[in-house]
Design a binder for these strands. Structure first.
Lengths: 349, 349
DNA sequence: GTGAAAGCGCTAACAA
DNA sequence: TTGTTAGCGCTTTCAC
């Protein structure tokens, strides 16, 4: 009702106790050379007056904000939600706050996010590069200003910064091998934009798995899409209209796989009996659809934690930027489990 | 390689042009009383020197941070991701940055988030109250400090602040009515924690729909759960073990519905022929599961936008806090569409 | 149209 | 153990 808000500063506390602001500041920061009784009195008075530390003033003085900025393509993708979770955990342990910026997979938004972070004087940046981004100058600027930068998942070696990613090559290799182990011989791949590093690596992992298993590579079994449900559906329809019908599909990620599943069902084919399918990323929905979607787990929370740890290493002046590679794991669910199913009407060649 | 980072301030620009910092500041802020040629020179020099506005210093001087804090239960729930999207859109239009804090549905985390925001001197707070939260003192503190607070989705009338929510009562009423319209007569409800306002309202909407359709309320058809997949499964199993078998279920939200679906399938019953089901929230997975999940759409992005607009009204010193109620819509999908399906083996009484 | 000067709230070097 | 003093970078009132 009073209508006016009194702002309490350390000076108010100081006056109250007949000491100086400097002593109050030291007491609140638990400075060793302050008498315990003084600290106690300060803390009590602070509570009584409803004092709240002014982080802005502190930041200006200290030259650091205790904020780390995180750029993610979209908060609506479960994967990034989990990663952020891991980041926040480690940030909290280090008394840091996390500022999140969504690029919505747009280069311009991403640049804007970086500018915002620089203006806000974040102490470090964690980022996952948008699919649209090709020019990396905005990220270079972060580095040039001496602000630690760590990339996760969608990384780029050109920047030469610390990074955490899953071994996409290995994940793709394992996923493809899994399909072959389940008895498939005409394994198709719905690939993503090849300028995105991880998508390119997944294609290479696919190719390598075929090689190792002595299965000749067939260009008719590879189709390039734009990594979305719709694109997955379209790509699958392309595959279905080609001379060689696949008996398995390794999709570049789960949403693409979902689109492919819809197309396969629409064509009246069975999963996994006629066509087995596996995705990548372990998105939440995969467990709930029918058949449940086999996929590759990327250890999302761990990724966030490790990325944040690398960042704090950088903040503490750690040496060389480190590149961490997490091991992915195939999660075998209904969409690719054929060994205990009815025999395929399209027996292996 | 140089190793040292030069921090450029407005003073550097001033020296460069033989003017004062005050003029530079005015020029950069497009102050009317500055000669156009001066502004141009300042802007050019700023770019040339790679000057970046120091928001921290600015905030300290101005007494506002141009940051709004958002507290959400979890970024891993699609719903909140969308709401945040809407918030960020409006925030960006107002040149504000968004700080996100996840409570993980924990009261202690939520309190911590509020403290962090107060310390960071955010100009306003948007929050969705965690399921665990009963005591609201931390939110009162925000208000007491004269910081605008707007609640969204999980609101509480006790706080008397602006809020945006969907009309949960109406949504539940419509969802239940929809099941009745599809021919169901033994409509069960898997309810949530009743101290959470929206869950209580959904129960009331369910009851009202039965009343309006002259269907007697049957306590055996209501079961109280904890709002999760596991809880949904358990609750559904309870319902299946009771004397009266339901022919439809209105679940308090989509994850609960998902658990219920799993239990129904495990019991060898068909959806929607034996038991129709509808959820609430329009989570992303609902579209992809089999059968696809009928649900209630909550206009998530609009909710975020409206919440942010209400906040900015508050920041501009708007009058009474307004309470906005968005109209929900039933989305009818496979899990409840019976009129064109095979006749139920459990005909209506 | 621009300059001079003060101050936002906090912290740290230096003094006592 | 505590006080004095200066300053982080910016904005704004008051002067000219």
């Amino acid at each position: 009702m009073s209508g006016h808000i009194i702002k309490v500063t350390i000076l108010d506390i100081a006056r109250e106790l007949n000491i100086t602001a400097a002593t109050v500041s030291r007491a609140l920061n638990d400075h060793p050379g302050i008498r315990e009784s003084t600290k106690k009195a300060v803390r009590e008075t602070a509570t009584r007056l409803n004092y709240k530390h002014n982080k802005i003033a502190s930041s200006l003085r200290l030259g650091r904000s205790s904020i780390i900025g995180v750029i993610i393509p979209s908060a609506e993708i479960n994967f990034f939600g989990s990663v952020v979770h891991g980041i926040e955990k480690v940030a909290a342990e280090n008394n840091y706050t996390v500022l999140i910026y969504q690029s919505n997979e747009l280069y311009e938004h991403e640049k804007k996010g970086v500018q915002t972070f620089l203006q806000s004087r974040v102490d470090g940046v964690l980022a996952s590069i948008s699919k649209e981004t090709i020019n990396l100058d905005h990220y270079s600027e972060i580095r040039n200003r001496g602000i630690p930068l760590v990339l996760f998942d969608r990384t780029d070696p050109r920047l030469g910064v610390a990074s955490v990613e899953v071994d996409d090559f290995a994940g793709a290799f394992q996923a493809t091998s899994h399909l072959i182990d389940e008895g498939c011989r005409r394994v198709a791949h719905i690939a993503g934009q090849q300028h995105v590093n991880i998508f390119n690596l997944r294609l290479k992992g696919y190719v390598e798995a075929l090689n190792v298993h002595n299965i000749p590579l067939n260009d008719d079994l590879i189709v390039y899409g734009k990594v979305s449900i719709d694109s997955g559906r379209e790509c699958m329809n392309q595959l279905l209209s080609r001379p060689v019908l696949p008996d398995a599909v390794f999709a570049v990620e789960d949403f693409t796989a979902l689109g492919a599943i819809q197309a396969i069902k629409a064509a009246g084919l069975r999963i996994p009996e006629d066509i087995a399918i596996i995705g990548f990323a372990n998105e939440a929905f995969g467990e709930y659809i029918t058949p449940s979607l086999s996929t590759v787990n990327q250890q999302t929370v761990a990724m966030g934690e490790e990325a944040a740890r690398l960042l704090f290493e950088g903040l503490r002046g750690g040496g060389q930027p480190r590149r961490l590679v997490l091991k992915p794991q195939v999660i075998c669910r209904g969409s690719s489990r054929r060994m205990n199913s009815a025999p395929s009407p399209f027996p292996a060649l």
